[in-house]
Amino acid sequence: MSAQPGGPYGPLIPVPDLNPDALRAAVAKIAPSRLPALTQHLFEATTNAQQTQSLAPLRAFVHSWAVFIAIERHPERAARLRELERIVDAGEQDPAKAIDEIRQIRRAAEAEAGL
């Protein structure tokens, strides 16, 4: 794991390495309720990789969970993303600005994770 600067209070955890064990350890610290989903996704990715003889499913697993962790390790950013998703899901207002901000959050998370 490498340290990265965060918001005014800093991130909850350092940026993990991009491998299943490090991602699992990070999720266990910041969102333990998501461990079953991570385990299931890893099982499916491994099975698909074997069946297709491709690393693409494993790369997708790493990408997905690295972005999740990069977002969730900053509670303010995670809360803002959930609020933006609620705005889009509610359909009560034009979602264009919310969607744009969601994209910005995800791009920042990808960069932070080294993707």
Rank of each mutant, 00 (worst) to 15 (best):
A45R: 03
R107K: 12
T46P: 01
A66Y: 02
D94Q: 06
A79D: 10
A90L: 09
L84P: 00
R86Q: 15
A56D: 13
L58T: 04
R107M: 11
G114L: 05
A70P: 01
E85N: 10
Q40I: 07
T47M: 15
D89A: 12
L81C: 03
E92L: 14
L58C: 06
L55C: 10
A60H: 13
D89H: 08
R82S: 10
I102A: 01
I69L: 08
R59F: 11
E76N: 12
D89Q: 12
T47N: 12
S64A: 11
S54T: 10
I69Q: 01
Q104V: 07
E101H: 06
E72H: 14
V67L: 12
E83G: 07
F43N: 09
F61L: 11
A66I: 01
W65A: 04
P57Y: 06
A78R: 08
S54L: 07
L84E: 02
Q40C: 03
V88H: 01
E101A: 08
A90R: 04
L81Y: 06
G91H: 03
A66W: 00
I99Y: 04
L58G: 13
A108F: 03
V67C: 09
R59V: 10
N48V: 04
Q50D: 10
T47L: 15
A45K: 02
I87F: 02
I87H: 03
D94N: 12
P75A: 06
A45M: 04
H74E: 15
A66H: 03
E112D: 10
A70R: 00
G91L: 09
T46A: 08
A113Y: 00
S54P: 07
R77K: 14
P75N: 08
Q104K: 11
E85H: 08
A111S: 05
Q104F: 06
A96M: 11
T46E: 15
F68P: 00
P57M: 00
Q53V: 08
A49D: 11
T52K: 15
Q51P: 00
L55D: 11
A56I: 13
I71W: 02
E72A: 11
L115V: 09
L81A: 04
A109V: 00
R82Y: 03
E76L: 14
R80L: 06
E72P: 00
L42F: 13
K97R: 09
R106P: 00
G91I: 07
L115I: 15
A60E: 15
R86D: 15
H63N: 13
R77A: 08
I102R: 05
R103K: 14
K97V: 13
I87C: 02
H63W: 13
H74D: 14
A60T: 13
I102W: 01
W65F: 14
E92W: 02
D94A: 11
R107I: 11
P57F: 01
E83W: 04
Q40A: 12
K97N: 08
R77C: 07
E110G: 03
R86F: 08
A66V: 04
E110W: 02
A111D: 05
N48L: 15
H63K: 14
A66S: 15
I99A: 09
R77N: 04
S54W: 07
I105E: 05
